[in-house]
Design a protein around this nucleic acid. Structure first.
Lengths: 276, 276
DNA sequence: ACCGTGCGTTGCACGGGCTGCAATGGCCAA
DNA sequence: TTGGCCATTGCAGCCCGTGCAACGCACGGT
């Protein structure tokens, strides 16, 4: 396959991923990745030994508990998540909208945390169907663009390599050039806006959280269905959002303002840190 | 090492697990599992290709986003979790104690869901440090014994093979025989009690949720620090707990009462299902 | 009871892929 | 520039992963 990678491990991980779509018998699992039964058996046994898959009583394999514990362990290791949690909750309490915490991973954003809207919301993106761990193309989301805006030109070029710009909605950016233009604006203003570019009926504002060296390590985003909050209504929350990310940045030991932006609020941040 | 399993995959998974303890450079990662750097490089590249590890800008490896998405996907696939969530929340709301949902995996219980106590609780087992995905020896917990009680003698013997019975606390069961005696009692009464056997200062009551074929597919447990609720106080919640698991079993399409128990409450179940 | 079928499991010979050594390249600091 | 450190690459040897085939077992139909 690709050069410099292990075929065996590749197959094992493929089989693991395939189990994410539901439990499977040995033969099904082997079929899904196109190897012989005995091969799949050995891979599955190894995965089972490590607890990544578990064999239920009907001899079918399903994802195992080790996956959960590792994922949790990894989440706990991300301290920006701990630090920002009470701030996200505070933002949510005040306006009721969905609040996300996201980081950049390659050309995708990875949602590390989420506080669900305080109003019923069946949208696939904001509702309970959207979960921690979900990913989305960075260029198509406000949080993603805030994080992309912090990359150097080299890093950006590397991240965008081979990236598509699909027209998810009529407003989606369609090329790297359009994106770069947008990123320039994001850098200038210190925040990003998503007017139904990823999901037609969902608007979103996002701002970066600064790490200890001044780089953006995460983004905080407020999202709402268009029928609940228009873009201009969301924009009205910007000062509060900017204050929040500033506070998180300080709490995290980072610099309060992005390297590429000056005009920020300097208000005091009263956050009820209700964590244990 | 062990027979019938893949060395390469074994190493890859070991390296993955080791990353759970924190990011590592290539050399560190290789050192942790005792292989040559070039070997570790190939394994890590493969893991990276699949998104299970991610390379941060300083070239160090950390656990990747795929782990989160897979874990979430797996959790969503477990429908008993969805079904029981509102019931757990209801139990928690009424008494304020920590409520767990657990399944059996080999000789361990795996905690699938958790509603945290409504009072401050710094205990390592009940507090925020205990997370979804955590595991514990089945024999040492109320939830585990409820699930073990449902196994056939063959299954039980298989699960207990090579299991230790460490004296975690003075009250811990110390042998398979003691466990079997206890399981007989559990079967008779339809629930299990943990009087500080796993954690000295934590008591716990648990009852089984019945699947469609009458087997116990999960357990619901109420836990509280001893200084908040004594064993007798927790026991007073038993009728409510039994009603709850009965309701969940019905909602899940299972039989309301365990195969090995008759005297159950037959009260009506008013559960505010506040799910979306 | 018998056999057919389907599936999980095992044994084994072949060769492909994994392994680790050694060398190269890039980066930073002295 | 030099030296050290670390990631990365090339390569020869050979281990170990692979798939074929055979076996055991449970189930169900006749």
């Amino acid at each position: 396959m690709g050069d410099g990678m292990s075929q065996t491990v590749d197959r094992a991980l493929t089989i693991l991923a395939s189990l994410g779509e539901g439990p499977a018998s040995l033969e099904q699992a082997a079929g899904r990745i196109g190897v012989h039964k005995s091969t799949a058996l050995r891979l599955l046994r190894t995965l089972e030994e490590h607890g990544f898959v578990h064999r239920q009583s009907d001899h079918r394999y399903r994802l195992g508990g080790r996956l959960f514990s590792l994922a949790q362990q990894a989440l706990e290791g991300i301290d920006v998540r701990q630090v920002s949690a009470p701030y996200l909750a505070s933002l949510n309490e005040r306006y009721g909208h969905t609040v996300h915490l996201a980081v950049l991973e390659g050309a995708e954003v990875l949602y590390l945390d989420k506080v669900e809207a305080r109003y019923p919301c069946s949208d696939s993106w904001l509702g309970p169907a959207s979960r921690i761990g979900k990913r989305a193309p960075a260029a198509a989301t406000a949080a993603g663009r805030v994080l992309l805006a912090d990359l150097s030109e080299d890093q950006l070029a590397a991240a965008l390599e081979n990236q598509e710009f699909p027209a998810r909605t009529p407003r989606s950016l369609r090329s790297a050039d359009e994106l770069r233009t947008e990123l320039t604006a994001v850098r200038r203003q210190g925040w990003a806006l998503d007017q139904g570019e990823y999901e037609e009926a969902v608007n979103c504002v996002a701002a970066p959280i600064q790490g200890i060296d001044g780089t953006a390590i995460a983004a905080c985003a407020i999202s709402a269905p268009a029928r609940v909050a228009s873009v201009s209504e969301l924009s009205r929350l910007l000062p509060e959002l900017l204050c929040t990310v500033e506070a998180v940045s300080l709490a995290y030991g980072g610099s309060p303002t992005p390297r590429w932006c000056e005009n920020r609020c300097g208000a005091k941040h009263a956050v009820r840190a209700s964590h244990t």
